[in-house]
């Protein structure tokens, strides 16, 4: 009787362990799936381990109105940090503008955030001269967000899930209008 119970317990444990292994294996294969998108232009994209929702991510629009990431829940959000002094960033912005046109706007939002500390007007002028018709001007007040997110290199682009979790980031410049980027975003939307 006692022996029976032990066997039952052991087999129960065994099943649980098996189940865990199965999940682990699944997650590995899923990761491999993810990695298949990480090629070409998106080569530098690194997935994040952080799977919790982050509630303290916010920035400001040109009228100093605060916008929270949570306002955009339900959409995959691409957040790109740029500055007027960063040539690679300025070069990259038009490709983000193109990307935002290629993907269903009810499911995806591109946010570009300027991190200039001084001479914000210059950054607005650069933004205007680039004619990014699908992107609004946002800024990071006092570099709160970049220091909170530990962004010390720009351009850096972070992608957030529909429920505001960081999915991963790409440090450096990328061609965001490429098919690789579209595939990556569509993968996150699904």
């Amino acid at each position: 009787m006692l022996k029976n119970k032990l066997i039952r317990n052991i087999s129960f444990l065994f099943v649980i362990i098996l189940f865990i292994i199965l999940i682990f294996l699944l997650s590995i294969t899923k990761n491999e799936d993810e990695k298949s998108f990480i090629k070409g232009e998106m080569e530098k994209f690194v997935f994040s381990n952080n799977k919790t929702e982050d509630r303290s991510i916010f920035w400001f629009d040109i009228n100093n109105k605060r916008i929270d990431l949570t306002d955009l829940n339900g959409k995959v959000v691409l957040v790109n940090f740029w500055a007027s002094w960063c040539a690679p960033c300025i070069e990259e912005l038009p490709s983000i503008n193109k990307l935002s046109k290629k993907i269903d706007q009810s499911k995806f939002e591109s946010v570009i955030i300027n991190i200039d500390k001084v001479n914000k007007e210059k950054s607005v002028r650069i933004y205007e001269s680039l004619r990014l018709d699908n992107l609004k001007y946002f800024y990071d007040a006092n570099n709160h967000l970049v220091s909170y997110l530990k962004v010390d290199v720009i351009p850096t682009t972070i992608i957030y899930s529909k429920n505001g979790k960081e999915l991963g980031r790409l440090i450096g410049e990328a061609e965001w209008s490429s098919s690789d980027a579209v595939k990556l975003i569509n993968y996150f939307i699904k």
Binding site: A83, W85, I154, P155
Partner: peptide, 10 residues
Amino acid sequence: FLTCSDVCIP
């Protein structure tokens, strides 16, 4: 100071 290549780092 700022140092840049294809990214910029203050």
